[in-house]
Design a protein around this nucleic acid. Structure first.
Lengths: 243, 243
DNA sequence: GACTTTTAAATGTCAGACAAATAAAAAGTC
DNA sequence: GACTTTTTATTTGTCTGACATTTAAAAGTC
């Protein structure tokens, strides 16, 4: 692992990249301890604060974890989906809030992904997944529910659908898409409440999944997508020309 | 923006989270300049190195960029897909190489996502996308091509298919899945060369996309998935019992 | 007015120090 | 000897203060 002191890039960025490469290439393996900060500083011929900045960069990507104390140090982290979920959600939320992608584009991607999960979920969903979905549908039909709680339940419902596919990669990919849209969906439900319709569609999905009927699930998801995008469009128009 | 000095978490992590929250909530908007490191240190009542570690964490996630010199500083970054692609690829590659997910699971997710793009791509692909795909097919059929180059071309082909959907979110999600599998696919093609079959399937896809026939694209992708997973399984078995 | 020089502000880097946590080793106790 | 307590060494977390480097704007010069 070497760096180029003449490079215009920050030393800490170079060091982070060098260590990252070592992890990706397998020269550093999971749970292996990196040299101490002092040793790394010596090795790269930089000061300890510079090394620390590099390590913080890697920690931000969950590539390493650090422990204090004797026999502490920085260790190569085994990536787990928990960490990745939250990062994915943060990224997706920002993409939407910064207008880097339109709601329509995000919505299309979200339902495309969800429909990709549907056949797998119809095939593999367990009784647990079904029970979760039924429970969320029941919660959604409670009259006193706040809009926020309804949206959270909506997210949980779709989460169960996706998890039913039994593929953590798909779950991870969709976590961002679904959760990132919650704030915007919230805004929509505030103005255009139509819970009955959504609940009915959710019930259709649960029924179809119970019957392992992938085709129907897909069809209902298409309906739900159209409905969502229509609502978003209505809200957008109402905003442009407020009565 | 406040932090809790009593919290067990690192101060730099807390500060990073506080700034991250401010960006997500919209209190800090794109291209807005953050206070200087000295001001932030004063505001959070910590030292400048601690602030710097926090900023490096955010920089690692592409949330901010820094400029040196007068009127320099840290600025809220508009997320762009270029940055996100490479992060996604790094993450996906590590997930695979660390055995956090099996090749089979990754493969299933990858083709599920790709099939989700197929109908959109059949509808929206431009002549450009088709030309790219044809060019890659032609390259793949050149006899002198190395295995690495064949794989790279394979990636480029599928990239064009996905990009044809015209949805950057889907492209971004798939970038990781497809590119991360390249090294492993490489390994497979080394042992079980069967380029003709793959090229034939690629041609079928291009033809179907030209005819805007989503159903056929989907069917061919299913074939390709089965073929890929069969190959992977064969290689795995051969490894377990090496003749 | 156009060009050059100076200046100030900001990040990048360094050195050295101390605090706090932690595990291992050492000492003490029964 | 086995267990508990204390000590110690190691390592990260944080601070202070300093200097180098970059850069844009201000000042100066022709």
């Amino acid at each position: 692992m070497r760096i180029d002191p003449q490079s215009p890039a920050d030393l800490s960025a170079q060091i982070a990249q060098a260590i990252r490469d070592a992890i990706i290439s397998g020269r550093l393996i999971v749970n292996q301890r990196l040299p101490s900060e002092a040793e790394l500083a010596d090795q790269f011929q930089v000061s300890r604060p510079t090394v620390r900045e590099a390590l913080k960069r890697l920690a931000a990507q969950s590539l390493i974890r650090t422990q204090r104390g004797a026999s502490g140090g920085a260790f190569v982290n085994r990536l787990n989906f928990e960490d990745l979920y939250s990062q994915q959600i943060t990224t997706s939320t920002l993409l939407l809030s910064m207008n880097a992608v339109s709601f329509d584009t995000a919505c299309e991607a979200r339902y495309a992904l969800e429909r990709a999960c549907a056949p797998l979920s119809a095939q593999r969903r367990t009784a647990d997944h079904l029970a979760t979905m039924r429970a969320e549908i029941f919660r959604q039909s409670q009259p006193g529910l706040t809009d926020e709680a309804f949206c959270a339940s909506d997210v949980a419902f779709h989460r169960a659908l996706v998890d039913g596919a039994g593929n953590p990669v798909l779950s991870y990919q969709l976590a961002g898409a679904v959760e990132a849209m919650q704030p915007l969906m919230n805004m929509i439900t505030f103005t255009a409440r139509s819970r009955e319709e959504i609940i009915a569609l959710h019930s259709d999905i649960a029924d179809a999944l119970e019957a392992r009927d992938a085709g129907t699930v897909d069809a209902v998801l298409v309906k739900l997508e159209l409905y969502t995008r229509q609502l978003a469009q209505d809200v957008a128009e109402r905003k442009r020309k407020p009565a």
